[in-house]
């Protein structure tokens, strides 16, 4: 591998920043939308009325995860055309499962005796959800969001194929011209985006987690 430092630094400083901004959008928008879908769905699935659908819905989400990322991104392209939309759609689908799975696990992990006690002091189902179940399951939910963020930042590199741009554009250029510098620079920026988002989520997590559950 012939590696030129100068070219690497130029790829990192001159070439990457605009693409990084697009990449950030390609991660944030899908994860936020996925959260807005997966979280309420998972909460509903733990309510007594909808519990029997849990398995079916999770099978559906699981199947979404089984489908190769390239296939999902590609399949929206003929319908939505070139640009960010097909990538955003595909990445949203991809981000759903970890959030849904962890929200379910978190809510199911709330100890029965805590719920009994909450009911005992006269909380309604809504109050119990808002004041007991969601706060107690927050660490697990946040872990799911973090997994989603990491998965999506990597997969978003494929967005460049359908014209969404992002760091994938830098990496694909590296592949086309056999330039390791571009590929490595692109990868590092993606890694940095994942790490920064992960840190920010940790801070939020720390704020949301009840003090006694902090480790």
């Amino acid at each position: 591998m012939d590696f030129e430092m100068e070219r690497f630094i130029s790829a990192l400083i001159d070439r990457s920043p605009p693409h990084a901004l697009v990449h950030l959008q390609l991660v944030l928008i899908p994860v936020i939308v996925a959260f807005l879908i997966a979280f309420p769905v998972a909460v509903l699935l733990t309510r007594r009325r909808f519990m029997r659908y849990t398995d079916r819905v999770m099978t559906f989400f699981n199947m979404g995860q089984t489908i190769p990322p390239l296939a999902i991104i590609a399949v929206f392209f003929p319908f939505l055309g070139l640009g960010m939309e097909p990538a955003l759609f595909a990445l949203t689908i991809y981000a759903l499962l970890p959030i849904a799975r962890n929200t379910l696990a978190g809510l199911k992990g709330v100890p029965q005796e805590v719920k009994e006690a909450a009911r005992g002091i006269g909380m309604s189902e809504w109050e119990m959800l808002m004041r007991v179940e969601i706060p107690l399951s927050m660490p697990v939910v946040m872990a799911g969001i973090k997994i989603s963020v990491v998965l999506t930042s990597g997969t978003a590199a494929l967005g460049a194929l359908v014209g969404a741009g992002g760091m994938g554009a830098v990496i694909f250029a590296g592949i086309d011209f056999f330039r390791a510098e571009l590929i490595i620079a692109g990868t590092l920026v993606i890694g940095a985006i994942a790490i920064v988002l992960d840190r920010i989520l940790s801070v939020i997590d720390n704020k949301l987690t009840p003090p006694h559950m902090k480790m």
């Binding site: 591998m1 990322p69 990491v150 930042s153 994938g168 590296g174 390791a180 490595i184 990868t187 890694g191």
Partner: peptide, 17 residues
């Protein structure tokens, strides 16, 4: 390794002579 996008990992390998 898992965080590296698949396309990058493939790309890095092909630049190894």
């Amino acid at each position: 390794l898992f965080v590296i996008p698949s396309i990058s990992l493939f790309g890095i390998f092909i630049t190894i002579p």
